[in-house]
Structures are given as structure tokens and as C-alpha cells.
Write a protein that binds this DNA or RNA. Structure first.
Lengths: 194, 194, 194, 194
DNA sequence: CATGAATGAGTTTTCATTCAT
DNA sequence: CATGAATGAAAACTCATTCAT
């Protein structure tokens, strides 16, 4: 087993533990045990628990961004771009439910709070992803396709429902299939389109 | 200082601490200290921390419901009812940002999870509030005013964005005024209307 | 309800609670509750918990002594006196199992330990009861009826088995009836008689 | 200092504290302090206080059994076997007074009570030791050497006095020497023999 | 006298982190 | 580099006792 194996084992176990049981119930010792490394070893790869948690957040964010940018319909109409982003995000989280649970936990915790504060003060880790949506919205507004609302409001109108629907899906309230995803995408488009 | 003073002092401090720092960083000892009571005193009013947390949730929920039902346009068109509920929720949370943060924390925690499971098995704490929205949606669907989507999806489309917008407001990304609230209400209506 | 009612209510509840659950699980607040008095009221009758516990011990000891001295065969043969004492103790505890459990708890606790220390240093609360047995033994030894063993050894030979048998009875290992009591009395007599 | 040193330090301190002051006055923090380890260290060796207490009970029981079985007069007359068991138990406790006090505390506590319940339902921790005595008694009864009394009564007649005598010895009421032990053994034999 | 709310020291237990091997 | 035993600061909670009413 080489160095990077251990690192990713630790990250994977952290993901599973935190997604399933929350930050408050994911002791370092258990992460170590399930990752088959000694407790102290984690600290060779991650300075402390906070950094481990933030690093995992970053990695998931990266994969998310990658999923969105893959096959991105560059130059295509705004609505198509929106559908692409919306659909890919949706599919990514349905395929990776642990990632969804982790992000949920993360954003609703001091970690997420401080991340938001960072965003406020300009250094957004996910600047890029936001940017993708932001470009779509900027273009849509300038072409009078979208409602002239503040960027963050458009963003909330477009993404907010999806996150709740996915949560309901993971809880078994509703079953998301491609057809339903499409109809929800359309509904969200209705919300933001002029 | 009479009995109920201490009880509400404890609840108020709990609200502040948890809203600002999360469940895992709101020790009973600090709640006691900030409420100017001894550690043991909390336990005269609340059997344990869980019960304190759930009780606070219940009280906020009650106030929320009260706000929504106040001046409710009974018998009026579905859209008007929707606007009322949406607007009141929005105003309540803007007036009581700590309540918003608390509810956010609560729903994203084992407490909230179990509450959701309760909902699944039929015994919804906020039966009434949910019912209000559900009645609106039921009527809207049957009158072919709303899209024929699962209830939980309509709910997410209608409420999801608001919660994100309020979050952005509390973080200073956007300033919500009456005019903006109205326009967001309309956008959400666009999302759910047929 | 007059003063002495409250006092004996408190003692009775203390007896029940401690006999059934032990000293460590008999909070003053629960004693107060079950005795239908306020927590502070107990302290009007008993300076503190230790004194309450010791007082209860003393009262049970008094009743025990009374039972033994009742119909005591004064002037009769040593064996008859022994049988009387042995039988009465046995019957008392079988009739008052809570008293037995309480005494058991008491003697196996710091309270009992300190009582024993007191006894060592001469101030025996139960001097009288010991004396009864001691007189029997003294007479028996001088008349060459009993083995010439130290007083405390004779005492242990005579009483020790009974206490264990009663314990076994309360636990359901054995059922003590008059016939069995008689045979055990005889066996104990065999142990001490020359 | 190696691993097993710490473990036995903890057990030794626990023995001393509980034997001298009882379960309710032997805080983990003090055990830790007197054993020169940190509070948390105890929990590496013993899952919790209950397990520590039960483990100590088991270890003492094992040593006791070992003492009894050492040089056991297999095949010899019942009386000789009885004398052996009685004498060894006596000597063990006189050599290890803290073990005696600990066992006393243990059997008179919820721990001991549950142990007794186990015995009732067949799974006796000290099956072996009990068995040794039981075999002696069984043989003695069938050969018409012992009184035909229930097993638990014979047991109490044989062992009960010894425990009280040892208690008196630890308290200084009586000094047990080999001669006295022999005479008490004989007295107990008189109690059970036909 | 009686009340019972309030106190706060004390208890068990957890867990992120360190460091000698 | 890896280990995992050890640490000790904190957390939730209990309960004998007090004292203002």
C-alpha cells in the first residue's frame, strides 16, 4: 500500500462516517480503525480534524465541478446550459448519495458557516462553479431571457429546490427518475425565466 | 425574577448559542452561565439537552405557524393564499434571524432527521403548517392551476428558494425588501403554476 | 397529618427505597416525593442523609431486640434460650423482608463499617442484643455446655448461617418453613454445643 | 512500565479504594490518580466502571479457586475435603484481607445481586468452586455422613460462620490462628454432619 | 414549620491530539 | 514514516443541601 492509498482510504472512511452519522459522531480513532491505519497516521496526511474535513469538502467540490463541466454545451442557448448544469448536479448527487449527505452536513455546521464567511470576503473555494452558473445567468439577464433579479436570488431559485428534492429522495419521500428530473428542471426554469 | 423568566432565559440563550455556533458547540455549562443560572438549574426545566433542543424547536415552530395563520386569506384564490404564506414565512425569518439559523441547524442534525422520520410515519409535528401548504397545493392541482407534481416536489419548489434567499440575506449577499420578496414570491409561483 | 406522621412516612419510604435499590439509588428528592413532603422538610426531622440512615438502622434494631426479648424464656436451659433467640430473629426477618434487606445494605456500607468501628471502641448501639446472646453464651460456656471459643466466634457460628439462609430465602433458593427453621436451629446448636 | 503494569496498577488501586471505602466512594478520577495514570487511560483497559468492577471480581474469584484446588485431597474422606476447602478459604482471606472486603462489598451491591441472579438461572461464574463444595455435600449426603438439608442450607452452615469470623478478625475482635481455624472448622463440621 | 427552586461540586465518560518507540 | 498508548480537557448530568418565601 503506498502513501496515496492511505490518504484516500482515510478520506473515504471520513466520508462514510460523517455522511452517515454526522461530524459529532465520527471520532478520529474510528476513522483510523476503519481505514486500517493508526490514529497518529491520520495526522501525517491531515494536520488536524478540521483540515481533514475541509479537504474532503474541497475534493467533493472538485468532482462536482468536473461533472458539471463535462460535456458542457458551450455556446448553446442559455436554457440548454441551465438544463445541463441542473441535470448533472442532480445526477451526480443521486449517484453519490454520500457526497450529498456530506455536503449537507458540511454546509450546516461551523465549517460551512466559515466557508460562507470566506465567500463573503471574496475567497470562494467554489468560485468556479458559481461562475459557471453566474455566466449563464449574466447572459440570460442581458439577453432579457431571465428575470432581472440579484444573482444570489436567481441562484437560489434555480438550485434551492433541487437540493430539497434530492433530500426528499434520499429519505424516500419521492422517487427521482429522469422524467421527474426533467420536469423539475423545467419548473425551475419557469421560476427564473422572464 | 419568577419561574418563567428563568425558563425563557435558558431558551433564549440556547437559541443564541446554537444559532450562532451549532449544537456541538453549545455546552450546557455555557448555556447556564450566559442565562445566569447554575448548571443544575437547567435540568429543573428541561429533562436533558435533547428535550431542551426539541422544546425550543417546538416553540419556534408554534410562533411560525401563528405568523402564517394570522390574517390568512381563507377562501381567497390559491395564488393569494400562497403569496400570504410565502410572504409571512419570509418576514418572520427576516425579523427573527436567530430562529432561522436555529431551524436550519435543527433540520440538519439527528434531531431534524428523526423529526422527518416521524413525518414519514404520519405524525408530523408541524402537521398544521404543512397542511396549510398542502391544502393550497391540493386545491391548486385539482383546479388545474398548479403543475401535477408530487407534493414534496411542489413543496421544495415553493419553499426551497426562499430558505436559500433568506440564508443569503443573513449573510449579507442580498438585501431583502418588500419589493424583492414580492418578486421572489412571483418567481416561485411561476415555478409551481401550470 | 401531625409531626410524627411525617417523620415515620419519611422513614418508611427511606426503608423501601434503600432496601429495594440500595443507598446509592435513593435520592433525598425521591424520598421526599414518595413521602409526600418537600425536600427541605426531611431536614427538619433529620439533620442530613447519614443521620436519617443511621436513625432508621437504630429503629429497626430496636424492633428486632423487642422481638427477641418478647416471651424470652428467662431462667430456662441455655439451649431453649438459644432456640428462642434464633427462631425469633428468623421469623422477624421473614416477616419483615425489607428490614432484612436494609440491615444487609447497612452492614455492607461505610455506615455499617463505622458502626463496627464504634462497636470496637465500646459504644455499641446494639450492646443489649449482643448482651442477650452473650449472656446465653457465657452461661453455656461456664456450664460446659458450649464449646470454649471466643465470644465473637460463637456468635458467628450461631448467627452467620441464619443470615445467609434468609438471604437465600429472599432470593428464592430455598423456602424456609417452621420445620426447616427448627432443623437449622438444631444444626447451629450442634456447631456451638460441646 | 509495560502494558500489564498499568492494568494491574489500576486493578490494585480499585481493590484498595473499594475495599476500604465502598463502590460509591471510589471515583474513577481518584483511581486514576492513585494509579498514576490519566483518567482516560483506565478506559483503554476497561470499557467502563462496571466492567472494571466485574473484572476485578473475576480475578479475585480465580485466585480464590486456585487456592482451594491447590493440594485438594481428591479421593480422601469427605470431612478431610471439607477441612481443606474451609481452611484454604480462611487462609486466603486472612492473607488477602482487601480481597475479603472487596468480595463482601461486591456481593452486597447491584453487581453481586445480578451475579446471584445469574447463578439462579444456571450460569454460575464460580460454578467450579461451588461445585467443589457441592460435590463434597452430595457425597456426604448420599453416604449418610451429612444432614439431609437443602444444598444452600448446608452451604450457609458451612461457609456463613467463616465469613463472619473473618470479618471479626479484620476488625480486631478476634485473632485467628491455625489452632482457632481448626476448631472453627470442626464446629462447622459439627453443624453439617449427621 | 413547610416548601421546592436553586445551587454547584462531583461523577462518569469521550476524544482530538501527542510522542516515545 | 507508522504506530497506538497515553493524555487531560471538556461534556452531560446528579443530587445533598440551603434558604427566601
Amino acid at each position: 500500500m503506498n502513501k496515496s492509498d492511505k490518504r484516500s482510504d482515510i478520506l473515504q472512511v471520513t466520508l462514510e462516517l460523517i455522511a452517515e452519522r454526522g461530524f459529532h459522531d465520527a471520532p478520529m480513532s474510528e476513522i483510523a480503525g476503519k481505514a486500517h491505519v493508526a490514529a497518529g497516521t491520520i495526522y501525517r496526511y491531515f494536520e488536524n480534524k478540521d483540515i481533514l474535513i475541509n479537504e474532503l469538502f474541497r475534493e467533493i467540490g472538485d468532482k462536482l465541478l468536473e461533472a458539471i463541466l463535462n460535456n458542457y454545451p458551450e455556446g448553446k442557448p442559455v436554457q440548454e446550459q441551465f438544463s445541463h448544469v441542473f441535470g448533472e448536479l442532480c445526477r451526480y448527487f443521486l449517484t453519490n448519495p454520500l457526497h450529498f449527505r456530506y455536503m449537507e452536513q458540511f454546509f450546516n455546521s461551523p465549517y460551512g458557516i466559515s466557508k460562507r464567511r470566506d465567500k463573503l470576503s471574496g475567497k470562494n473555494i467554489h468560485q468556479d462553479k458559481r461562475d459557471t452558473l453566474q455566466e449563464i445567468f449574466d447572459e440570460g439577464i442581458s439577453k432579457l431571457i431571465l428575470k432581472d433579479l440579484p444573482m444570489s436570488v436567481l441562484s437560489s431559485l434555480a438550485i434551492g429546490p433541487m437540493l430539497y428534492v434530492i433530500r426528499d429522495h434520499t429519505l424516500g419521500f419521492v422517487v427521482l427518475d429522469e422524467s421527474l428530473i426533467r420536469r423539475i428542471t423545467e419548473a425551475c426554469w419557469d421560476a427564473i425565466k422572464r
